[in-house]
Simulated assay, not measured.
Amino acid sequence: MLRTYEEKKVKIQDEILEIGNSVVEALELTLTGLKDEDLSKLKEIDLSVKKISNKSNEIDNLIVTTLALYSPEAKDLRELVSYLKITNELVRAGANTKAFAKIFRKAFSDDLNTKTILEYAIPLQKSATLALQTSMSMLKETNSKHIEEKYQRVIVEESKTDDLYSMIEKNILKLISKNLELSKEYFDVLSALRKLAKTADRAASIANLLLFAEMGGDIEQSK
Score class of each variant (00 low, 15 high):
Lys11Pro: 06
Glu18Arg: 15
Leu42Ala: 02
Asn208Gly: 10
Asp110Met: 09
Lys8Met: 13
Ser71Leu: 07
Ala192Gln: 01
Lys98Cys: 05
Arg3Trp: 09
Thr199Gln: 02
Asp218Trp: 13
Glu6Trp: 09
Ile86Phe: 03
Tyr5Cys: 04
Arg105Ala: 05
Ser159Ile: 00
Ser40Pro: 10
Leu196His: 01
Ala99Met: 12
Leu139Gln: 11
Ser22Gly: 10
Lys85Thr: 11
Val154Phe: 02
Leu112Ile: 08
Ala207Phe: 02
Asn143Ser: 13
Ser40Leu: 14
Thr116Lys: 06
Ile172Gly: 01
Glu7Thr: 11
Lys11Arg: 14
Tyr151Val: 07
Gly20Phe: 04
Glu7Asn: 14
Arg194Glu: 07
Leu27Glu: 00
Ala99Pro: 03
Ile12Tyr: 00
Ile45His: 07
Ile86Pro: 00
Asp38Ile: 03
Tyr5Ile: 07
Phe100Asp: 01
Ser177Gln: 08
Glu7Ser: 15
Leu164Trp: 02
Ser166Asn: 07
Thr161Lys: 03
Ser144Pro: 13
Gln125Lys: 05
Leu175Ala: 11
Ile103Met: 07
Val91Lys: 00
Leu42Pro: 01
Lys102Asp: 13
Leu209Met: 14
Val64Arg: 05
Thr87Ser: 09
Glu148Tyr: 10
Gln152Ile: 11
Ser205Asn: 15
Ala99Lys: 06
Arg202Cys: 02
Met1Ile: 11
Leu182Gln: 02
Ser48Phe: 06
Lys223His: 09
Lys85Arg: 13
Tyr5His: 14
Ala68His: 09
Arg3Val: 08
Thr4Arg: 15
Leu77Ile: 01
Glu44Gln: 12
Leu130Thr: 11
Lys102Ser: 05
Gly94Leu: 00
Met136Cys: 08
Leu130Tyr: 13
Asp188Gln: 12
Leu118Ser: 06
Glu157Pro: 05
Glu37Val: 09
Lys145Met: 13
Phe108Met: 10
Leu196Asn: 02
Ile219Gly: 06
Lys184Gln: 15
Asn54Cys: 07
Val49Glu: 04
Glu141Cys: 13
Leu193Phe: 04
Leu124Val: 05
Lys51Val: 10
Thr4Glu: 15
Val24Cys: 01
